[in-house]
């Protein structure tokens, strides 16, 4: 299935590694391909149960199955009020190693920080999908959507075939350097890294 992996190219999960106890933030508008990216990061990192906390109830398990998470490994908590989400996630990380959370739009920054501290203490891995940047100190890895381009569709013909997503990753887990990645997704073979464009180091060089 992942023939490119054998060619020695680094996988997305190898470049965007979420350490145990780490929180990765996926920041960007819906439609930028971050759900597929987040799910494939979890699929690569473990063989245990993956739990998706989805307040709105829009998450489609088909994406997870395509990414390599078998149906019996996937549990979804659906249709939660914004105030229920932190409680549910806090209870989950007591025993679940990987949690994907669709964050409600308005969430108290204090509650988020407390949650991140709990995830750190329990050494789980969590992905927070959000349309706006998270408060500082929550995420160890921030993945921002930069661009999304679809191939295969014209003006009234064809079908969606392949998506090229550009994301920028930064944060403690990236060792202090920001990196821009171009990913390709045809919905069948998982995500493929097209180019790991090395980006300028953060901060300014003197001299």
């Amino acid at each position: 299935m992942r023939e490119w992996a054998e060619q020695g190219a680094p996988t997305v999960g190898e470049i965007l590694r979420i350490p145990p106890g780490g929180v990765a933030a996926l920041v960007g508008p819906h439609g930028s391909g971050l759900t597929a990216l987040g799910i494939s990061l979890l699929a690569e990192s473990s063989s245990g149960t993956v739990v998706v906390v989805d307040g709105r109830g829009w998450f489609s398990p088909e994406t997870a199955w395509r990414a390599g998470i078998a149906p019996e490994r996937l549990v979804v908590v659906r249709r939660l009020g914004a105030e229920e989400v932190p409680r549910v996630v806090a209870a989950l990380v007591d025993g679940i190693g990987q949690v994907y959370v669709e964050l409600p739009t308005r969430l108290d920054p204090t509650a988020l920080r407390r949650l991140a501290a709990r995830i750190r203490a329990r050494r789980s891995r969590a992905l927070f999908r959000s349309t706006s940047a998270l408060p500082s100190g929550v995420a160890t890895l921030t993945i921002e959507a930069v661009d999304v381009v679809w191939e295969g569709v014209g003006r009234g013909y064809g079908r969606l075939r392949r998506r090229r997503t550009t994301v920028r990753a930064r944060g403690k887990a990236m060792g202090g350097t920001a990196r821009t990645l171009e990913l390709e997704d045809d919905g069948a073979n998982g995500l493929r890294v097209v180019s790991g464009v090395a980006a300028a180091a953060t901060g300014r060089a003197a001299g």
Partner: peptide
């Protein structure tokens, strides 16, 4: 952990597919 979540949200919102 899943049992604890089930007590919070009830059986109809903790699902598998």
């Amino acid at each position: 952990a899943l049992g604890a979540v089930q007590t919070i949200v009830g059986p109809d919102r903790l699902l598998q597919a």
